[in-house]
Nucleic acid binder design. Structure first.
Length: 183
DNA sequence: TGCACGATGAAC
DNA sequence: TTCATCGTGCAC
């Protein structure tokens, strides 16, 4: 399996989002390697994107988003669930891709069809915020046989407050995949 | 220092 | 449709 390097994440955010589909998310914690196949993502383009956390500028929380690509941006939502993003584009772009659903591949139990469920199943929490994805504990890899299939584009979930940005087709998932959160 | 609210999930 | 639960960002 080929681990994705910095250059993969440094590209255009939509391109990264689409090419993440079918890739393997790998998390090693307490000596257990958990793997999920990414089947649904959302792109958050930068400060101009009203749905993005980075639209409020550089703050303590969004510091990671504005940092170098290939790092994990993890945050707590509704005080209950964790969400995992990968930082994309050039350093300072403030862009990221939210991982919304994976399909269990190895050592994954419980449901994975949602950003919060995905983090729970793969044991990802705030301790992984700012983690370098080119390391050995949390990373994304291209599986041996990469046949992702057709990609569907839809509006993002839960960002109705973002006006015109809420209608942009920045959510991508693998057509027909049973693990997608909202087909 | 206080307060409104959210890139969700689950219960009712 | 409602609620859990708390960090973040901004008002005061």
């Amino acid at each position: 399996m080929h681990k994705l390097g910095r250059s993969f994440y440094r590209r255009d955010t939509v391109a990264v989002a689409r090419s993440l589909l079918g890739k393997y998310l790998v998390h090693v914690s307490r000596g257990v390697e958990r793997i999920g196949r990414i089947v649904e993502v959302e792109a958050y383009l930068g400060p101009q994107d009203r749905a993005s956390h980075s639209s409020r500028g550089l703050t303590p929380r969004t510091r990671v988003m504005f940092g170098p690509p290939g790092h994990a941006y993890v945050y707590l939502i509704y005080g209950v669930h964790h969400c995992l993003n990968v930082v994309t584009g050039r350093t300072g772009a403030g862009a990221a891709v939210l991982l919304r659903a994976v399909e269990p591949v190895r050592n994954v139990t419980g449901r994975t069809h949602g950003p919060g469920l995905l983090c729970r199943a793969l044991r990802v929490d705030l301790r992984r915020n700012a983690h370098d994805l080119t390391g050995d504990e949390l990373y994304i890899a291209a599986p041996p046989r990469a046949a992702a299939g057709a990609i569907v584009a839809r509006p993002r979930v839960g960002v109705d407050y973002a006006g015109a940005w809420a209608r942009r087709l920045l959510r991508f998932y693998l057509r027909g995949n049973p693990f997608v959160s909202r087909p």
